[in-house]
Simulated assay, not measured.
Amino acid sequence: MHIRPARRADSADIVILDDIASSGLASHVLQVGVSDGNYDRPLEFGRDGYAFIDGPFSWKNVLIAETDDGIAGMSLSFELIGGPGDQGLPDPVLEPLESLKSRAIGTRMIDSVAVYTRFRGQGIGRALVEAELARATGPSSIITDSANIRALALYQSLGFEQQDRAPFIAFNDNHAAAHWVLLTRPNLRGAPAPAH
Rank of each mutant, 00 (worst) to 15 (best):
S23D: 14
G159H: 02
L100N: 08
A176Q: 14
S58K: 00
A72M: 04
S11Y: 03
S35H: 00
P96M: 10
L25A: 04
D145K: 10
G33P: 11
V129F: 07
H2Q: 14
R4T: 09
I142E: 08
P96W: 00
Q87S: 12
F78K: 06
A178M: 06
N174D: 14
Q31S: 13
F52D: 14
F52Q: 12
G73S: 02
M109D: 10
E79W: 00
S99G: 13
A6S: 15
A114T: 00
D54V: 05
V115Q: 01
G121L: 10
G85I: 08
G49E: 09
E66Y: 07
T144P: 10
A153W: 03
G123M: 03
T107W: 03
R103E: 15
A191G: 07
R185W: 01
E44S: 10
L89F: 14
E95S: 11
V29Q: 08
R150G: 09
V62E: 03
R126D: 12
A170Y: 05
N187Y: 02
F160I: 08
L94W: 02
S157K: 05
E161P: 07
S11M: 00
P84C: 08
R118C: 08
P84M: 15
D173L: 13
D91A: 07
A12S: 13
D86V: 08
A151D: 12
I20F: 01
S140W: 04
L128P: 08
L152H: 00
W180D: 13
A9G: 10
V113S: 02
G83L: 14
E44V: 09
A136H: 02
G70R: 07
E98F: 09
D145V: 15
D48R: 07
S77Q: 09
G70W: 01
V93T: 05
I142W: 05
A114K: 02
Y155I: 09
A134E: 11
A178E: 15
S157D: 02
P167N: 10
